[in-house]
């Protein structure tokens, strides 16, 4: 008797798992053989399946009001509810700008940049490494070696700054 109650209890759990389609074949056949013997559990399965169907077919309620328009109105009326923006764009842009100018200075791109970033000679090993890198890129792109990196980095920084400015202007209210 005790074993039978235990089995029914298990079967109820298994029926639910069956509805969730998470039963292994072995467990499924165990359940099937229990259902053959147990009318109460058959009834439970029947009820659960009916509930399942009923819940799937539950009608979607209708609303008369235009919720989208109402929310849009609130958004327009309260410009302070704008999406909060994170300042990553401008930080990255600033970083790139500094890197670009630094690199330009390293190459002696302009006298003033050089003086700003590298008041002393950076040393021959660094200069040599930069030269190797530069020659490779120059061969690939056909640009003046000393122009490649500063130009690219400045362009990237400019893009990001421009994007950020556009964002701030449009969301500034």
């Amino acid at each position: 008797m005790a074993q039978s109650i235990m089995l029914c209890h298990q079967a109820t759990e298994r029926i639910q798992e069956y509805l969730e389609q998470s039963l292994t074949d072995q467990k499924k056949s165990d359940l099937a053989s229990h259902l053959l013997d147990c009318a109460a559990c058959r009834k439970t399965l029947d009820d659960m399946q009916q509930l399942h169907q009923l819940a799937i077919q539950q009608p979607i309620p209708q609303t008369d009001s235009d919720l989208v328009a109402q929310v849009m109105e609130k958004i327009q009326m309260h410009p302070e509810t704008l999406p909060q923006r994170q300042p990553h764009g401008s930080l990255v842009a600033l970083l790139l700008l500094v890197l670009g100018l630094g690199y330009a200075g390293l190459l002696g791109w302009h006298q003033w940049v050089s003086r700003l970033f590298f008041p002393v000679n950076p040393g021959s090993w660094l200069q040599r490494a930069v030269n190797i890198l530069d020659d490779q890129t120059a061969q690939l792109t056909g640009m003046q070696p000393s122009w490649i990196w500063p130009v690219l980095l400045l362009l990237l920084a400019l893009t990001l700054l421009w994007n950020h400015r556009t964002l701030s202007r449009n969301s500034g209210g």
């Binding site: 989208v68 509810t81 909060q84």
Partner: peptide, 10 residues
Amino acid sequence: FLRAYTALSR
């Protein structure tokens, strides 16, 4: 929807 709007960047 209002909350989602203010939190949209997240």
